[in-house]
Design a protein around this nucleic acid. Sequence first.
DNA 1: GCCGCACATTACAACGATGGAGAGTTGCGT
DNA 2: ACGCAACTCTCCATCGTTGTAATGTGCGGC
Lengths: 335, 335
Amino acid sequence: MRTVALAAGVSIKTVSNVINDYPHIREDTRQRVLEVIETLGYQPNLSARGLRSGRTGAISLVIPDLRNVYFAELADSVMAAAAKRGLVVMIEQSGGDRERELEILRGPRMRMVDGILYSVLALGQEDADLVDVPTPVVLLGERIFGGPTDHVTMKNVEAARAATEHMLATGRRRILAFGAHENEVIGSAGLRLRGFRQAFDSAGLHHDDALVVDVGNWHRGDGAEAMRAVLASGVAFDAVVAFNDAIALGAMRVMQEAGLRIPDDVAVIGFDNIEETRYSLPTLSTIDPGREEIAETAVRLLMERITGSEERIAPREIEVDFRVIQRESSTVTVL
Amino acid sequence: MRTVALAAGVSIKTVSNVINDYPHIREDTRQRVLEVIETLGYQPNLSARGLRSGRTGAISLVIPDLRNVYFAELADSVMAAAAKRGLVVMIEQSGGDRERELEILRGPRMRMVDGILYSVLALGQEDADLVDVPTPVVLLGERIFGGPTDHVTMKNVEAARAATEHMLATGRRRILAFGAHENEVIGSAGLRLRGFRQAFDSAGLHHDDALVVDVGNWHRGDGAEAMRAVLASGVAFDAVVAFNDAIALGAMRVMQEAGLRIPDDVAVIGFDNIEETRYSLPTLSTIDPGREEIAETAVRLLMERITGSEERIAPREIEVDFRVIQRESSTVTVL
DNA sequence: GCCGCACATTACAACGATGGAGAGTTGCGT
DNA sequence: ACGCAACTCTCCATCGTTGTAATGTGCGGC
């Protein structure tokens, strides 16, 4: 910058002013400075700017695992939303490990960013207070409600209920709740199970507890394994409401290997609307959680907190709308 | 830091020395400083450190698209390798767009990182010189060889040849080269096609050019579409060597819909060994490109360039070993 | 008891940018 | 012509850290 100033015959500060669109600069001065910048290929040092201004132009996205397609797609949407606002995204993977999730949040790296999008799996409601750090945080996901930060989430209960009602509407009654977690109340599994039950309750139907299936980690392999166990146990069922797409796809594969036809013998619906659901065989019905809107909203809220003045706005809870996407795996069977 | 120094009764520099493990510090002083740091919850300001030392502890990973599972998995491996060395990763998506790929490389953001892992789709050999930027760069992928930077890649030719030979070994002769790109010589498509042809040549067999299929963008949908076209054209074939897993999966789905049995009617092998290939129906044979080793090597080379003294080491080309992974989609048919 | 050396600590000046205050220059109304 | 406001630009201090050089201690050897 020093060199630029020298070459343009102005002060360093004037160069800075040009770069930052300070209004009171004569047009010819501005042009001259811009030309010199162009010629010399000058680029501002972000570290110095960050030091002086306190803003780095980077936000952090903390997620469990990029290999999980849902999170990769979420990261993609977040990066798009961030890019629109001139921000870069630093991704941190927690592996869904509680210690690591906390460690990341408290680490010095988080002081290098202007804000944090925090999507956790292991922290729970009891940790709400721990998320109160100096850097602005927007929480994603279903683990903590009513905490000290903004929170963007999907309508889990309503979506699970809608998925279940979709199955009921096609005449299915022995429906697996696939992906429950023992004793979980909040968290995706807990909320989705609640919605699932609501659908039965309000239809005046009873749901057999034997059809509630715990599926460990919601990876594809877990879904496959759990479905093998179900088939081995001999429990009869005619539909699966899977609590995410990965386990739905894993389960579908196992069922097909076992000779079950989808949707004729068993209808399936998943959750997340990952890209693969459009190409699986059969294509998988699912819940579109509004990923892009979640990302866009989360980044917007975070920006408001970052640029916001001292006014202490109360934490906001935002629930994004979902859509039921019907594909081949739950087409109404012609009897 | 000022506060810490005050509370510990030492100078600011001593605190800095403690943090940076400067050897000549009395043990009790070190302890006292560490205690105060702990108590006050002090954390160093990375921007300031970056400004002063010229190192930020961040590297950038430029990839086309995170939604592409191969790149998501690559990013995961890179982040793991980086984390081992105390680095964070800033991911930038280029969308496979030439202008954007260059823009990212030249943008001020790249001055905020210590090094760049650069995986491009649109740049080509003719752009080799453009990649010569002040920040250390390690190139990934198959678009540029012999450029001014280090380069880590897989053995594309050999791997494609091995995949093809695997198919020939199971008695297939009418094999689709699925994913070729017209006129491409280097680049993944060009190299893999070369390996494909080598397998035929060295077996003394002729390959019918009608079996070379151009598949636009190597996304799953493109594979599906291209396969539909092939089936419509009525060309006979008994195996598919797909140049990546995504198009293999897309094609498999279309073939199955059309009533073809895999591997009985058509054997299939892909490229990349993405997680999904272990769970598709049937499971997909593929080439494991040694993703983790690529990531590990790339980060290592980059670190060497970053910490390396002025000694101008010549650009290195490293080819990582691959493995042929045989799964259900290419099991030998019992005739 | 003095010197020299190794150890332990500190003072000071950067790194490159920006915020704020102020100095110089216009232009306009009176 | 003069004052005042608006404009244009510069000077200085500062963000938090670390490299360099210098200073301050303690100890053994002669």
